[in-house]
Amino acid sequence: MPEHYEVIIRSIIAFSLLLIGSRILGKQTISQMTIFDFIASISMGAIAANLAFNTSVKIHHIILAYSIFVIISLFTAFISMKSRKARKFFAGDPTIVIQNGMILESNMRKMRYTLDYLNQQLREKDVFNMEEVLYAIIETNGTLTVLKKSPYRYATRQDLMLHETSQEKLPIELIMDGEMVSQNLEQNNISQDWLEMQLNKRKVNVSEVMYAVMAANGNLYIDKYKDNITSPIDKE
């Protein structure tokens, strides 16, 4: 087999392995990761890359190595679910870097966390004055969680002693890409006849609709393929 054909086939296999591995391991692999998740993901990516272009290594050896990493990741995830000590070992502990408006320098040094980066993370949380912070904690996935002092927190309905309103529902997607989303219609007891009647009122067919969604307040939003906008503000 010509070498370039082999690279093409191996690349397809490598992509398939990454896709299958990600599906098996779940959404954790693409969300904010812990140190262990990061190591596992990088290692599996490197193995898949070698499968794609390193023709000197046998395919079944790389697939075996990749499978071992997936199994190890699943095993550690299972252990972490069962044991708090295991979770602490694999993910570590959150670290407090600000307490009652005061920076904990020793914890900052242990984390090798600079003041510049801390200020950047605080600004992303809409905090420009450290004196407003009661606690700032670096989570195990590297993100910064901030709890402001009570005078600087946003008021809630409970704080204002307002009556609780009924729980709002999520928007329901009814049409996508010119086709009705039958599953959403069935789950929410919405008939196709009702939806077609609403479309007829607007003199539009299902095939002309790019997107239709029922908002939490019951209003129906419809976006057609033809927007009839002659001069768009920003055209790519």
Rank of each mutant, 00 (worst) to 15 (best):
M108V: 06
T95I: 05
N107K: 07
G101S: 06
H163L: 13
R87H: 03
M102Y: 02
A77C: 08
T95K: 09
T145G: 09
Y113K: 01
L122Y: 04
I79P: 08
Y152L: 05
A91R: 14
R123F: 11
N100I: 08
I96Y: 00
S166F: 15
Y113D: 04
F128S: 06
D159T: 10
A136F: 01
E139I: 03
Y117N: 14
M81E: 12
K88C: 09
A86D: 07
K149Q: 12
R87S: 04
I103D: 01
L122M: 07
Y113Q: 01
M130C: 07
F90A: 02
F75I: 08
K82H: 05
V133L: 06
R157A: 11
G142K: 00
F128Y: 06
T95F: 06
Y113P: 01
K110E: 00
K88L: 10
I96N: 05
M108S: 05
V127W: 04
K88V: 13
L115M: 12
I98Y: 04
H163K: 13
G92E: 02
Y113T: 04
A91E: 15
M108E: 03
G101Y: 03
T165K: 15
Q121V: 10
R109I: 00
Y154H: 15
G142F: 03
S80N: 04
P94C: 00
I79T: 09
I138D: 03
A91T: 10
F75L: 10
E131W: 07
R123Q: 11
S83K: 02
Q158P: 10
P151T: 06
S106M: 09
K125Y: 13
T145M: 06
L118R: 00
A91M: 11
M102W: 00
Q120P: 09
T95R: 06
F89R: 02
N107R: 01
K125E: 14
T156Q: 10
S106P: 09
K82S: 01
